[in-house]
């Protein structure tokens, strides 16, 4: 069962869709960030699963997943400092209230 691609694809598709639901509905920027982490994880799970079962070079998928983890770390570090800055200035982290650039 764990030796075929299909169950991994099911899990990663579920992670992607749950993350998408979170990004679309949450009212707090940190919760949106948590949902983004789910989406990134589904991508790296997909890369590793395809690399394990369907690639000529067995390490290529894992190398790509390492890059995803590093970029996720960079993204979280910048995003959290931006969110904290926004919270300090506006006392709110609701993405719907950040519409000052709206024309």
């Amino acid at each position: 069962m764990s030796a075929t691609l299909q169950p991994y694809l099911l899990i990663s598709t579920l992670l992607l869709c749950l993350g998408l639901y979170g990004v679309l509905t949450r009212r707090n920027l940190i919760a949106v960030l948590i949902s983004l982490e789910l989406i990134l994880n589904s991508a790296s799970l997909n890369f590793v699963a395809f690399g394990r079962f369907h690639m000529a070079d067995p390490s290529a998928g894992q190398v790509f997943a390492i890059f995803i983890i590093a970029l996720a770390a960079a993204e979280v570090c910048v995003a959290l400092s931006l969110i904290l800055l926004l919270f300090r200035q506006r006392r709110s982290v609701d993405p719907a209230s950040m519409d000052q650039l709206k024309g």
Binding site: R52, F53, H54, M55, A56, D57, P58
Partner: peptide, 14 residues
């Protein structure tokens, strides 16, 4: 999907 090589990945390869 395309057929894989079936080799197990190794940490050394990474």
């Amino acid at each position: 999907w395309a057929q894989g090589s079936g080799q197990l990945p190794d940490m050394r390869d990474i």
